[in-house]
Simulated assay, not measured.
Amino acid sequence: MSVRRRASRVVSIGVVAALAASLTGCGEGSGVDADYAKICRDNATQKRLPDDDCNNHGGTAGWYYLPVSSNRSTTVPAVGDKVSGGTSSLPSGKTAESGISSRGSSVSKGGFGGSGEHGGFGG
């Protein structure tokens, strides 16, 4: 009886660990595999917009790139918050990751995010 109970605990712990690992890429404190976080910004107000505004509408909306470091976290503002500290053009040879939570997030380089221009994660 005790052998069966112990095996059940080991399986439960393994399932919990796997679930935690799969959720690590979502939300605050996430890691990305790119050099920049790619977000949509209203160039007139400098406030973050939903990514769909850059994908579909144009106007004053434009992609904005926030540098991501492996040494410290980069704060990506929520939609509606002011955005600064980045650039409106991706430097040559660098990669950017989109799909960052519209609620804002803290990201650093490395971890479980996708990579390249089309990679992403959300929360």
Rank of each mutant, 00 (worst) to 15 (best):
S98C: 10
G59W: 03
P67H: 07
G122S: 14
K47N: 14
K82R: 05
A20D: 06
L66C: 04
G14D: 08
Q46A: 06
H57S: 12
I13T: 13
V11M: 02
V10I: 09
V76P: 07
G29M: 07
V68Y: 00
G123V: 01
S92A: 15
T45C: 01
V79S: 08
G25S: 14
L49V: 01
K94Q: 04
R6P: 03
T87P: 04
E28W: 08
R72Q: 07
C40L: 03
C40S: 08
Y65R: 00
H57K: 10
D35M: 00
E28P: 06
A7P: 02
V79A: 10
G59Y: 03
V83W: 04
S102D: 10
V83R: 06
L23W: 13
T87Q: 04
G111V: 06
D35H: 02
S2L: 13
L19V: 15
S101Q: 14
A61K: 00
L19S: 14
A96R: 04
G14K: 04
Y64S: 01
D42P: 01
S88T: 15
G93E: 03
A34I: 13
L19D: 14
S108R: 12
Y64C: 01
A61C: 01
S92Q: 10
G116A: 09
G80K: 05
F112G: 14
T24V: 15
G14N: 10
V83H: 05
A21P: 05
S101R: 12
D53H: 15
T60E: 11
G29C: 05
S69G: 09
D51S: 03
T74C: 08
D81C: 06
S89N: 10
Q46D: 07
G119E: 12
S70V: 04
T87W: 04
D53A: 14
V10W: 05
G120I: 09
S102H: 09
R5L: 11
I13C: 14
M1V: 07
G62C: 03
F121L: 10
P91E: 04
K94M: 04
G31S: 06
G62H: 00
V107I: 06
K38R: 12
A20T: 08
P77M: 10
S84W: 02
P77Q: 06
V76E: 11
T60M: 13
A20Y: 12
A17D: 12
A7I: 06
V10N: 05
G99S: 12
L49M: 09
S115N: 15
A7L: 08
N56S: 13
G58L: 03
T75H: 15
V32W: 05
I100K: 02
K38G: 13
N56Y: 15
K82L: 01
V107C: 01
L66T: 06
A44M: 09
V3H: 09
S2G: 14
R5P: 04
L90I: 12
C54S: 01
V76K: 11
A37N: 02
A18E: 07
M1L: 07
